[in-house]
Design a binder for these strands. Structure first.
Lengths: 194, 194
DNA sequence: GTTAGCATGTAAGGAGTTACATGATTTT
DNA sequence: AAAATCATGTAACTCCTTACATGCTAAC
């Protein structure tokens, strides 16, 4: 229970944090935001929106204001604009601040990183470091499995492993640079004590 | 119809091509082979094996030979050894030779590449080039979406996009080197004509 | 006037995971 | 004799896709 790997849910809540949006627009921004990471279809977005409404995390804003132009693009067609509720904002903060596997694994990390602009410095650092040590574990398991099975592998398989390993090592270097940037911007409290 | 993205099926058939194996061993090799690409659990492997037997692509070899040591590790416990049937071999060749999205997308490409040792040169080249142009398309769509939404993105989101783009560009360079290697090894027929 | 894009949904199903259930064998 | 690892499986569930269904509006 409470073990939802829902990247979609988090991404939707995160986007609605900036401004209310309707489904169609939401999907475009979603896929622009996640870029190569992931793409979602309407068939998953709309049911997700319904669920979030049922859970009280977002609210529908169908009716146009009262008299004149009120929506972002008035007079188009009946569209359903969603916005975060107070509960939704809280839940979003919980998700973004959360530690644990959800925040380290590929997609979970990617979405959280995309919303780093609204995350506090301590959390950013924690997530970056969590991701890095997760990748370093992966490298270790990788190397030991390589040394165990090296003799059995042909050159193509080996080349695939080598390229995969190099990709992970490259991401570790990237993370290390980001971590250094964060530290420079906000030095650890131990430097201010004494 | 006939639109099975089954990475698992292909990987199982590919591994059984080298030698008959039982499920447990198969899973270990599977995860060693695919490394960072993917991991499979027993909950998907065993049902898949059953399905492949039903389809006549693999056969079970439960009974030990007749008298003395016959299996790879005799006298352990009742284990079910699977091997490719003639039909299975044919189907595997079809899958490995296949063009189209299945062979270009991330996982489909990865598995096919892992089995390049048993693939002919022309197919290798075709798949490598297919993968490369697929990635180049992705880069284009990416750049145009970036120029459309640049002003709206904060620095973290932008950094994520930049890193993603760089990863894809890096893979394109990798593929280009591999393609050059293949060409050097087996020059195109046009160079032999005249 | 027809194609393309905006806008919202639903039903069926695919591909895989987690957790459970069971038991033998080897190592410590 | 306890713990780890070998070995095989099943049931329920998750998350997402594809294909379908519908209709409005803008551009060509």
């Amino acid at each position: 229970m409470a073990k939802r790997g829902d990247v979609l849910e988090l991404a939707v809540l995160g986007l609605l944090q900036d401004s209310p949006l309707h489904g169609y627009e939401l999907r475009k921004r979603l896929n622009a935001l996640l870029g190569s990471l992931r793409a979602f279809s309407y068939g998953s977005l709309y049911p997700c929106l319904k669920m979030l409404v049922r859970e009280g995390l977002i609210a529908q804003d169908t009716g146009e204001g009262g008299s004149a132009a009120s929506g972002p693009a008035p007079g188009k067609r009946s569209r359903i604009v969603y916005k975060l509720t107070a509960e939704g904002k809280e839940h979003l903060q919980d998700l973004l601040t959360e530690s644990g596997p959800a925040a380290w694994e590929d997609e979970g990390f990617g979405v959280r990183f995309a919303f780093f602009g609204r995350t506090d410095a301590a959390t950013r650092l924690r997530i970056l470091e969590g991701r890095r040590s997760r990748l370093e574990e992966r490298i270790d398991g990788f190397r030991s499995s390589l040394s165990r099975t090296r003799e059995r592998l042909d050159s193509y398989t080996l080349e695939l492993q080598r390229h995969g390993l190099e990709s992970v090592e490259r991401e570790v270097r990237w993370l290390s640079e980001l971590i250094d940037d964060e530290r420079r911007r906000e030095p650890p409290p131990s430097a201010r004590e004494t």
